[in-house]
Amino acid sequence: MNNILIAVLALGGLGLLFGIVLAIASKKFHVDVDPKIVQIRENLPGANCGACGYPGCDGLAKAIAQGKAPANGCPVSSSEAALKIGKIMGVEATVGDKKVARVLCKGCKTNTIEKYKYEGITDCKAASMISGGSKSCDYGCLGYGTCVDVCPFGAISLVDGVAVIDKEKCTACGKCVDVCPKGVIELVPYDQEVFVDCKNQDFGKSVKVDCKVGCIGCKLCEKSCPFDAIKVENNVAKIDYDKCKECMECVIKCPTKAITADLDKRKKAFIDEDKCIGCTICAKNCPKDAIEGELKKVHKVDQDKCIGCGICAEKCPKDAIEMK
């Protein structure tokens, strides 16, 4: 009994002594931390993904507080958080264009053929080492989910043998882009609606054999685009997202449906007759000559010709054109 008492007292006393010393030390050696760092840290996601280039969220919070990093330095958090951090720092935070990752491939199991039966480990890197993977297309998504495993936000899922990224969950941290052995994942603007979902650089004939929805490099999209925004390079079409007005002309023209877009979201121009002053600026700028009307008279949009590019709405000096 005595032994136990001594042991408890000795160890307890030791613990108490250290506790008191630490308590005193924490008061005596107290250092004021910049309250900004704490506030900024609260507005960061705390995933410590490292996409900002700093060691974790604490590192970025410190860098922002010291002015070494911009208020929107976190590529992952929402624009609201960036605005809040900007407020803490007392600067206007310019919100960068939000991006999301997208798998540019529609080669699901029904659209492609299996070259052979792959029975190795379910990992795209391993699978791609055996003559480029089991899928008939050498450029497309293999669908073994290496990106699914690496995504820290659970934004990627496999749908019928092709990885699909949830636009809302994706934070554009870029980990899947790095890990994909086929390089089929790209960062695209969040607002973009039209995509060429193909990376196949083979000639049209062999693409047609490999995949039902592959880009055959026919250049019909290139010719149909009124804005010079889509170009065929190395036998595959590529959209310049800065130039693209999402008129979806290419989507309609594409013979293999390699270009994806939701045609229901296509807009049409409508002219507010009360506001229109008949200046003809819209008619001059319309790439499809879909607007008619004489000078100083209310103009009309030919809804069959209108492709919904929105150029007229941008140019109208009276804001009389609405896209809906």
Binding site: I6, A7, A10, L11, F18, G19, L22, A25, S26, F29
Partner: peptide
């Protein structure tokens, strides 16, 4: 006090507290 058998736990206590103190 003849408490040699408590060596490990006592030393861990010392090291943990010491590191905290040194940090502060």
């Amino acid at each position: 006090f003849g408490l040699e058998y408590l060596q490990t736990i006592a030393f861990i206590l010392v090291i943990a507290a010491l590191v905290q103190f040194v940090e502060m």
